[in-house]
Simulated assay, not measured.
Amino acid sequence: MRTLVYCVALTLDGFIAGPDGSDPTGPGGFWSPEQDYLQHLIEEYPETLPGPARAALGVTAEGTRFDTVLEGRRSYEVGLAAGVANAYPHLRHLVFSRTLTESPDPGVELVADDPVATVRELKQLDGKDIWLVGGAELAGALYGEIDRLVVKLSPLTIGSGIPLFGRSAAFAPDLWTLSDHTVLRSGAAFLTYDRRRNAPQSAGD
């Protein structure tokens, strides 16, 4: 079965964006990644690079991890405001929104249904894994469905902003196992965590 992977950049103090929700690595953003960070993305996660970045960097690799990307309305509108109606034309691109009524791009599917039900259906389909790009509100709604976290940890703090699972996520402690890690010379790190599923207890427990 396919897995849902929340692959997202995160500051040392736990934020995926500043208070205004803008792209941390976009024009005027607070983080300009070093070359080794970009090179690691190109080599390991080429499908997570937006189409314009792929074109600028000469990236043509299809990638082996994801064929579907999920995005919330606020996250999607950050790209839309920058003139990018479909940042991931090389993937099946689903945007969850109950307010958008017409897709700005034929390659973007608008989904007004329950995110949890939709993800459970997607997991049953054949294909590569499903990438949750953000934003935090959608991640919070899908908290229980996320199977893997890929944290692209940036070596900076910002003090306040939008946390990993949003400001209204329910309190639900869970354990994760560190399954892979790469620490770059620039100080950035790629940390992969898999959710620990509770093992069934025996009758004698």
Rank of each mutant, 00 (worst) to 15 (best):
R196M: 11
S97R: 12
G166A: 05
L191A: 03
G204R: 13
G18C: 09
P33K: 12
D23C: 01
S154E: 04
T3A: 10
L91R: 06
G18D: 15
T177I: 14
S75Q: 14
L49F: 10
P200F: 12
S75F: 13
P33T: 08
T60D: 03
L94Q: 04
D23S: 05
A56E: 11
D174N: 14
P24K: 09
V133I: 15
P104E: 11
G161K: 11
G28F: 13
L175N: 06
G28T: 13
H90P: 02
R185S: 12
W31N: 10
G166M: 02
N198T: 14
P46L: 05
L125M: 12
R195C: 10
Q39Y: 00
W131K: 09
G51C: 02
W131R: 10
S22M: 08
A141Q: 14
G187H: 04
G204F: 14
W31T: 09
E71T: 13
G144M: 01
P104F: 12
R92W: 06
D129V: 00
E121H: 13
D194N: 14
T25V: 12
W131F: 11
E109I: 11
H90T: 04
I130D: 03
G79I: 02
R195N: 07
A203P: 02
I162H: 02
S160P: 04
M1W: 05
N86P: 05
L164Q: 08
L156E: 13
G72Y: 07
W31S: 07
A199T: 09
V78N: 14
E71K: 00
S32N: 14
D105S: 15
V78C: 13
M1Q: 10
L156P: 05
I130P: 02
L156A: 14
G134L: 06
V8C: 04
A199E: 14
N86L: 00
A17L: 04
T68P: 04
R65I: 09
I146A: 00
L94D: 06
T48W: 02
L125A: 15
S22D: 15
D205L: 01
H93Y: 14
K128L: 15
R92P: 04
E77P: 11
L4E: 10
D180T: 04
L91A: 05
L57G: 01
R197T: 10
K128V: 13
V8M: 08
L125G: 10
D147I: 06
A203N: 05
V108W: 04
T64D: 08
G58D: 11
G107F: 02
T68R: 07
A81E: 13
E77V: 10
L94G: 01
